[in-house]
């Protein structure tokens, strides 16, 4: 059984991660730990008790984010999803984290190397599910003879373009507003 102290410690760690998530989503990854501490209403030093460096904080945050995406997509994959419902599930997951994800894809090149590897592994989960769906759907729909990585990267490229250029398409959530259009036309592009 956890002691009161352990429960408190875990709660503070979660509070820091939740707050960092929101601050980074709002301001980008250049936001200072001082800002995160203030927003979380904890002392600056408390952050470093839980995360020795900013790099550690960002990596923990990305790992948590990756696990959440992993869990959501896995639960959805239990149902017999087809290509269309899988792509919708992917977009729906991203809509939940849209502001944070937008920052992440815009700033990934300036994040620490280890964070980049975590990012790759987040995408691996998506590519794993997409690959499974494509394999399963082969008999039902004819997919053009395109390598799997081009199928995946084209999908990612499409949604990342809309996300990073949100302002070109809408003032609201670009994924919410363009979801159906993106899915429908992406399938047309890869279908024979």
């Amino acid at each position: 059984m956890k002691t009161k102290r352990q429960i408190q410690k875990e709660a503070t760690r979660k509070l820091i991660l939740d707050t960092a998530y929101q601050v980074y989503a709002d301001e980008g990854f250049a936001a200072t730990t001082n800002k995160i501490a203030k927003a979380a209403n904890v002392s600056h030093g408390t952050i470093f008790v839980h995360f020795p460096t900013v790099e550690c904080l960002i990596i923990c945050l990305l790992e948590r984010f990756g696990s959440e995406i992993n869990e959501h997509l896995h639960i959805l994959s239990e149902k017999d999803e087809n290509l269309e419902t899988f792509l919708a599930a992917h977009i729906n997951v991203l809509i939940r984290y849209e502001d944070f994800y937008k920052r992440l894809i815009s700033e990934i090149n300036s994040l620490p190397q280890e964070a980049k590897y975590v990012f790759i592994n987040i995408q691996s989960v998506v590519s794993f599910h997409l690959n499974q769906v494509i394999e399963r759907e082969k008999d039902k729909i004819a997919i053009k003879d395109i390598p799997m990585h081009i199928i995946f990267n084209s999908w990612l490229g499409l949604i990342h373009y809309y996300l990073t250029n949100n302002y070109l398409f809408t003032v609201g959530s670009v994924l919410t507003e363009h979801k159906d259009e993106l899915i429908l036309n992406y399938i047309k592009l890869i279908e024979k």
């Binding site: 592994n121 590519s127 990585h149 081009i150």
Partner: peptide, 19 residues
């Protein structure tokens, strides 16, 4: 699998997987 589904460079895929 990472190379097949994401088209990564071999050395990048190795490091990401190890990580």
């Amino acid at each position: 699998f990472t190379i097949k589904t994401q088209g990564l460079d071999q050395s990048v895929a190795e490091k990401a997987v190890e990580n």
